[in-house]
């Protein structure tokens, strides 16, 4: 049901029956290592290309979620997935393996919540009984496509971010036990003219702020309604900017409730500059970490605001600025 200007309110409260998180070697050394279902010590996952490794990770995330939910793959009506590679090959190739009717998404790093909100909408409107929403990113395949070869010695500035090697999946159904998706706010594209791909936090922060404001306006809620409000992958630079922007606009989110997945996933001593980024960032932190804490009763209500930078390797060479987006999904126990 449309609520306000750009939000969906899900009357039937679709439930996340199971979720999964898969990570790579760098994530295994991070602060949330215990929250992953599978951790790989090999960047290649035994495959002969980084792209195949990313696809395999995504497949593993999907299989793990299906297995944990204890339902048959044939019972899943739709598979929604997105990633960062050109023509979203990781998602489409994983869909080929899964053989579930599939819709491909592209929202860059916001794909996790784009997929989850549409999955909830499909289940809520009875267009589906079970929907699987997934996303993935791989550090090396993203670097290869968007920046330089992984072994190239270029000095990165302190505003740069580290793409997460990880995949996450959530299985959404109508009935059952688990955290429930109560509403979602679809963001609009915000572009403040920043064109430096090594400064994505500052580029994406205004989009996150725009969506957070829209969410609370549409739902007529107060920020204290949530135990945690987490942005997707703003990193230290973007997160600080977003916090100050929200304050400037008169929105006061208590400091202990406001966080960023891109800061949480790695430890401070890991050389990731400003923090993490990538589809896998908000996906693994939400599906692995936050949902575990919800199931354990530690958190009751959370709002995930996944942020995405919608540029292509060609657009920034042509000096185009970076259009950004953010989608928010509210999950309650």
């Amino acid at each position: 049901m449309l609520k306000g200007h750009q939000s969906w309110f899900f009357q039937n409260r679709p439930v996340i029956l199971a979720s999964s998180a898969v990570g790579g070697p760098f994530e295994a050394k991070g602060g949330l290592a215990e929250d992953f279902d599978i951790l790989h010590d090999d960047m290649w996952l035994g495959q002969d290309s980084f792209e195949k490794a990313e696809k395999k990770m995504l497949e593993e995330a999907c299989e793990t979620a299906i297995q944990k939910a204890g339902i048959k793959k044939e019972d899943i009506d739709f598979f929604l997935s997105g990633d960062l590679l050109n023509q979203i090959i990781s998602s489409s190739f994983a869909a080929r393996t899964l053989a579930i009717p599939y819709l491909g998404l592209f929202g860059a790093c916001s794909s996790s919540m784009e997929g989850l909100s549409i999955a909830a909408q499909l289940v809520d409107s009875k267009a589906a009984d079970y929907v699987l929403a997934a996303t993935s990113s791989h550090n090396a395949s993203a670097e290869k496509q968007f920046r330089y070869p992984t072994e190239y010695g270029a000095q990165k500035p302190p505003t740069a971010q580290w793409t997460v090697t990880g995949a996450g999946a959530a299985l959404v159904g109508r009935d059952g036990e688990g955290p429930r998706i109560t509403c979602a706010t679809i963001g609009r594209v915000v572009d403040m003219g920043i064109s430096d791909p090594f400064n994505m936090g500052a580029a994406m922060a205004p989009a996150a702020v725009d969506t957070i404001q829209a969410h609370f306006r549409d739902l007529e809620r107060d920020p204290t309604y949530y135990d945690v409000i987490a942005t997707g992958d703003l990193g230290r630079v973007g997160f600080e900017i977003a916090g100050e922007l929200l304050n400037k606009h008169g929105m006061d989110i208590p400091e202990d409730r406001f966080t960023d997945c891109g800061i949480m996933i790695y430890k401070e001593d890991q050389p990731v500059m400003a923090g993490a980024s990538g589809c896998g960032c908000s996906a693994t932190v939400t599906y692995g970490h936050f949902l575990r804490r919800m199931r354990e009763g530690e958190l009751k209500r959370i709002l995930i605001v996944a942020t995405g930078a919608l540029m292509s390797p060609m657009s920034y060479q042509q000096k185009e600025s970076i259009p950004c987006i953010a989608h928010a999904v509210s999950i309650e126990m």
Binding site: P157, P158, T159, D191, M192, G193, I194, N199, A202, A205, P206, V237, E240, I241, E244, L245, A274
Partner: peptide, 21 residues
């Protein structure tokens, strides 16, 4: 080509970005 709002934001963000040493 930037709008005043974009220019204003970039100034705002610039102050909060760590500089290259």
């Amino acid at each position: 080509k930037l709008t005043p709002a974009q220019q204003q934001y970039q100034e705002f963000a610039k102050q909060r970005e760590p500089k290259r040493p």
